[in-house]
Design a protein around this nucleic acid. Structure first.
Lengths: 236, 236
DNA sequence: ATGTGATTTGTACTATCGTACAAAAAATCA
DNA sequence: TGATTTTTTGTACGATAGTACAAATCACAT
């Protein structure tokens, strides 16, 4: 007799929990958290609204579980790639490898289907823009360590650039990365169809190239002691 | 007898329409469109919910009016600065002037109070992330012309870089710009207090410096005919 | 001062939100 | 199989959403 697979093993058939997670991820990533209702998610997953409550208790709990699901694999992948990058001898090559170790897992997560990593990263971008409280807490706990590790690694390969500047430029990197996933069609539109903003491989290459160049730019000396400056600064 | 100012002139006292606009701008920019209710806006403006309906008919109409209010002055300022930048002889200096002409008005709009430009730009960033339909329409109509003008100007000062790459890199610029306004506290946090992410002047300098460097990076030759590529591309 | 149009207020309507919960169904195991 | 647990369904409740609208109030020209 053929043993029936247990629910843990059935990844194909009606695994409602997974279907709901996938649907929520997709909807949150494209429309934001508040624009999507629990009913929308249930419908997209072919489930009953009550089923969402059963599996995740609250809407926040659902978002939390999406993060919990992705953060581990993604940061693991990043630290593996970062460790490998650190071993590159040539400083120029090492810098590129580090940047690549940061960018690549954001587009292609190791855990699931094609586009899974990009979809989660887009979700993070949208949650960040919406100032989502749940996301904010998770990010501060989970991603700051990773960010510091990358900043330190970059600083090692660019010892003459002050750390503050590296922070700024890696911040720009994350912003560019996010925006590339949020509005890929803008690239296609502005290039009049010559580039495909949804082509992850192309986006990665462009992003890595541009970012490495920005890191290698000469430092703004005045910015190092940024605290004491009497510029006509416009607080935002 | 002292003439009483007409309602058009009174900018100080209870100009409800303006108060509502300002409150909505602030709330939308920090929390997104869907998380903010008309009642929230009315309360923040010290107005009655019905007053919002009276002045702007719908919530979408309110957002529309915010855009209508800012787009004109900001794009005007940008084209003035761009025209001036185009006249710079030295190609290196010209490139920096062009980038600055793009960035500066996004932080400091000419029309209103301190932080007004940055607040509106942050609003645009958030609307873009949320995939807001109203914003999407306005952007395609209003901002694409400006973007093309800047891309063309940059291309003129970097004739050896293919236009496609300039599109990518200016896209990254906008993403970095947006993100700097959306999460300035992240810069402060990651730099351990050494940098102030809310310091617009510092952000502008860092952004201009990094972006100019990225534009000057060597072109990815393979990316020019990007349409015909058989990379293991991961569509997002 | 008074009448008139512009604005503000208060309230109400309908729709939809997140969530709770009991009943039904499915799955699991002795 | 029958008992028990897990999952799904259906429905309902209170809260809040956007918007409409009549009444009240204000600004101002005559």
């Amino acid at each position: 007799m053929v043993r029936k697979p247990t629910s843990k093993e059935t990844a194909r058939k009606p695994n409602m929990r997974e279907a709901i997670l996938a649907a929520a991820e997709e909807l949150f990533a494209t429309n934001g958290f508040n624009a999507v209702s629990v009913r929308d998610i249930a419908q997209a997953a072919g489930a009953n609204p009550g089923s969402v409550t059963y599996h995740f208790k609250t809407k926040d709990g659902l978002l939390l579980e999406i993060y919990r699901r992705h953060c581990g694999p993604m940061n693991l992948r990043r630290s593996e790639l970062l460790a490998a990058a650190r071993r590159v001898r040539d400083l120029q090559d090492r810098l590129e490898a580090i940047v690549r170790a940061y960018v690549v897992p954001a587009f292609t997560s190791g855990s699931d289907l094609a586009g899974g990593g990009a979809r989660f990263t887009r979700l993070r971008a949208v949650m960040s823009a919406e100032g989502n409280e749940v996301a904010r807490r998770i990010i501060a706990q989970t991603f700051d360590d990773t960010s510091h590790a990358f900043i330190d690694a970059i600083h090692e390969s660019l010892p003459h650039v002050p750390r503050t500047e590296i922070v700024w430029r890696s911040h720009f990197l994350l912003g560019a990365l996010y925006y590339s996933l949020v509005t890929p069609e803008r690239v296609s539109r502005l290039s009049r169809g010559e580039a495909d903003g949804s082509d992850a491989a192309a986006a990665i290459e462009q992003l890595v190239q541009a970012t490495v160049a920005s890191f290698q730019a000469p430092a703004l000396d005045q910015a190092a002691p940024a605290r004491r400056r009497a510029t006509a600064s416009n607080k935002t």
